[in-house]
């Protein structure tokens, strides 16, 4: 693995402040009822986990995640306008307003999506990796999975399948301490979640401080190369969520201990600050560049809100029905057909 260059670090900073600005704006818009819907799971606090690990990928590699997917999409280069429009359910949204916050995807970025059922995307990840291997390609499927999902049958079955078939998957367990409101220790017999890899004969790359993008990158680079050449790899990212499970989550208001815990993480393990300190200690005064990225983030997100709010809502019956099925000459449709979908 090559050490990250100055350009890379500055770009990571750009990505991280963009995510933070985007997510905090989403939070505000939700409070203001300008984003509606019951589900909005923010990536604030997780930034270094996604940024550092995806920096280890090539363009042809694949990415899939669960519902905390805004940051993942933005890192991969999705247009913030299309993402914000999706938050607002607009036709110009990346999923045409059909998917919402939990279902971002981008075919052009090999981003196969955010998925909303805990663990449901894990066998999809194995299937995407199987397709790469089947075709003799050496692309890797990077898969983000929360700590809570490691207790679910999908996790067990998918990791096991990836092991017996030597599939090129990097399973990144984003351990932010809680599955909804349940602490890891109350939900999992094995609290060192990366050690679950042992049960399937999968190589674990251990537990990483995922508030530090450089450490994340260093380990992810090794795991990605391992997956590309040999088979599945597991990494545990220890991170923290700043905005609860989702925006409707009021646990931080209800529990003083959690509020204190959050303040502690923000004060001592803030991923953007950690990266900034690294850059400054290595390259001296980069304040102007970083301030430029911060200003850009504010501008880009403000523009995305403006774009999204000006966009049209899907409203017709055709908007509703379209794209349940692929239009196909092999499907018989007549006036009396029931359940065929509309083209």
């Amino acid at each position: 693995m090559a050490a990250p260059t100055k350009e890379m670090l500055l770009d990571w900073y750009r990505q991280m402040v963009l995510i933070r600005e985007f997510e905090e704006t989403c939070h505000r818009l939700y409070e203001e009822k300008r984003i509606t819907g019951v589900y909005l799971h923010l990536y604030s606090g997780h930034e270094a986990s996604g940024v550092g690990s995806m920096a280890a990928l090539r363009k042809t590699d694949h990415v899939i995640t669960a519902y905390r997917d805004h940051g993942i999409g933005l890192i991969l280069g999705m247009d913030p306008k299309a993402v914000m429009a999706e938050m607002m359910g607009k036709k110009t949204g990346s999923s045409g307003g059909k998917g919402g916050s939990m279902h971002l995807a981008s075919a052009e970025h090999n981003f196969w999506g955010g998925y909303a059922i805990v663990g449901g995307h894990l066998p999809l990840a194995a299937g995407i990796a199987l397709a790469s291997k089947y075709r003799g390609e050496d692309d890797v499927t990077m898969t983000y999975v929360g700590d809570g999902a490691t207790n679910n049958g999908y996790f067990h079955e998918s990791l096991n399948m990836s092991a017996i078939w030597d599939l090129p998957v990097v399973w990144i367990i984003e351990n932010n301490g809680y599955g909804m409101g349940t602490e890891v220790a109350r939900a999992s017999g094995q609290v060192e979640l990366h050690r679950k890899a042992e049960a399937y004969g999968i190589k674990s790359f251990g537990r990483v401080d995922a508030q530090n993008a450089l450490e994340v990158y260093a380990v992810a680079s090794k795991a990605v190369e391992y997956a590309r050449r040999k088979g599945p790899a597991v990494i545990e990212h220890v991170t923290y969520r700043y905005r609860g499970h989702g925006v409707s989550d009021k646990q931080y208001d209800a529990r003083d201990d959690m509020s204190a815990e959050l303040q502690e993480w923000m004060a001592t393990r803030e991923p953007i600050k950690i990266l900034r300190d690294c850059i400054e200690s290595a390259y001296g005064d980069v304040a102007a560049i970083l301030a430029g990225h911060e200003a850009d983030a504010a501008r880009i997100v403000a523009e995305s809100v403006k774009f999204a709010e000006a966009s049209e809502l899907p409203a017709t019956y055709e908007d509703l029905m379209r794209n349940a099925y692929v239009a196909s000459d092999l499907v018989h449709k007549s006036e009396g057909s029931v359940g065929a979908g509309i083209d």
Binding site: P123, G127, I128, L130, A131, E157, S158, I164
Partner: peptide, 20 residues
């Protein structure tokens, strides 16, 4: 496959998305 119906169901989806 192993006796893993959840994975059989989902692996098929992923493989199909990716072109198989």
């Amino acid at each position: 496959t192993p006796i893993s119906e959840m994975a059989i169901g989902g692996v098929a989806v992923g493989a199909a998305l990716a072109g198989l």
